[in-house]
């Protein structure tokens, strides 16, 4: 599984998107686009990514750009590996 696939799976599980998960692609906008993506959900995604990939988000990493699209998020995770 690629990093992107794993990130997509984790986001899908965190947001409880079910079947909609497979419809997400790198260009899918996250912030402001997916209704389930509120502040609690963002925290949940961050925690799940940290746990699954063994990485740590710094405060400076939590930006609008990182969470703008699923592709951005996956690319960010890749840089932390």
């Amino acid at each position: 599984m690629t990093t992107f696939d794993r990130v997509r799976q984790i986001v899908g599980e965190s947001l409880e998107l079910g079947e909609r998960t497979s419809t997400l692609d790198p260009e899918t906008a996250l912030l402001g686009n997916i209704p389930e993506f509120d502040s609690l959900a963002v925290l949940g995604v961050i925690t799940a990514l940290e746990k699954n990939f063994g990485i740590q988000f710094e405060d400076d990493d939590i930006t609008g750009e990182t969470f703008e699209t699923l592709g951005n998020l996956a690319a960010f995770v890749q840089t932390k590996l």
Binding site: L31, D38, S39, V42, I46, D59, I62, T63
Partner: peptide, 10 residues
């Protein structure tokens, strides 16, 4: 505190 950070992000 992180939750507050993500809320500010939104």
């Amino acid at each position: 505190l992180r939750l507050r950070l993500t809320a500010a992000l939104m």
